Simulated scan of single mutants.
Amino acid sequence: MDVQLQSFENEQEMVLSEEEASARTRGFPRLKTQEEEEQLAAQRLAVPSPLPRILKEFTKAAIRTQPYDLLRWSAAYFAALATGLEPPVKERLEFPPLEAPGGLTPGYLRVLHRQQGDAPFVQYEQLLRRWKGLCLGVEALDTIWGLVATEEQDEVPWLHIVSAGSGLISQSPLQTMVLVCETLTTEPEGASACVPMTTFEPLYLHVSQLDHPGLPGVGPAVGIDVTGPLLEHLRAVAAEQGGNVTPRNLAHFNCPKLY
């Protein structure tokens, strides 16, 4: 009898110990099997197939463009990609970094020109969105807009923006017109940067009438005594070059002065 009682008590202690152990571990999650762990790992590591390429192109674009505000530029970059527009990306790194009004540089001017596409006119609000996407100072945009537009105008010819923007960041009217050619040319970088004379002539006349002595790239307005001989010379040169002129033609010793 004593042996049976002792055995029963031992069994009860074992039951209590199992219940107590179960109670102690009830608050902890059940350990997953190896198969369950592998399934979860596969789900966690599922990377969308386009992601590596997108991140690689984004990184290269950010390095080339060197935006002043990476987060704001990134928002403009992905918004452009999502809507099928030209992203705000420089074709190459500009080095050393250039100091210019509002951060505008020749590289950024070419980005804006590519974003404009073939549209002949641009509205201020439209240009302002692109300007902010490139993290450029709005004061520089207002200076450019003030050079080409009256208070009543809500849109202006895009090429006037290109010429005025070139004037803002240049140190002489000659440098301005060279930059205009480099911005508008369809030739690859390093080529002659030729543009049609039919494009160059009205833009040069536009710059020649921008009376702003405080801007070295614009200067005071000049008359027909200056513009006449220059255009006559360049028309003759363009006739021998398939109707095009190049920055080299402007800097040639036979070329009359631009201002």
Rank of each mutant, 00 (worst) to 15 (best):
V3K: 09
Q4C: 08
L5G: 12
Q6W: 11
E13D: 10
M14S: 09
V15A: 15
V15T: 15
S17W: 06
E19A: 01
R26I: 12
R30L: 04
K32P: 07
Q34C: 12
Q39F: 08
Q43V: 15
A46F: 06
P48K: 11
S49Q: 10
L51F: 10
L55W: 13
F58Y: 11
K60I: 12
A62W: 14
Q66A: 11
L71I: 08
R72G: 07
W73C: 06
A76H: 12
V89R: 08
E91Y: 09
E91Q: 12
R92L: 08
R92E: 12
T105R: 03
Y108F: 08
H113V: 05
Q115N: 05
F121R: 15
Q123E: 15
Q126E: 15
R130W: 15
L136K: 03
E139D: 13
A140D: 00
W145V: 00
L147A: 05
D154L: 11
E155K: 11
E155D: 02
L159K: 04
L159A: 00
V162N: 00
S163W: 04
G165Y: 03
S166H: 05
Q171M: 06
L174F: 09
L174V: 08
Q175Y: 03
T176P: 06
L184Y: 11
T185Q: 03
P188W: 02
S192I: 00
A193N: 14
C194I: 05
P196C: 04
M197D: 00
T199V: 14
F200C: 01
E201D: 05
Y204A: 08
Y204H: 00
Q209S: 15
Q209N: 12
D211H: 07
A221S: 12
G223R: 01
D225A: 04
G228P: 11
L230W: 02
V237K: 00
A238K: 04
A238T: 06
N244P: 05
V245R: 13
L258H: 10
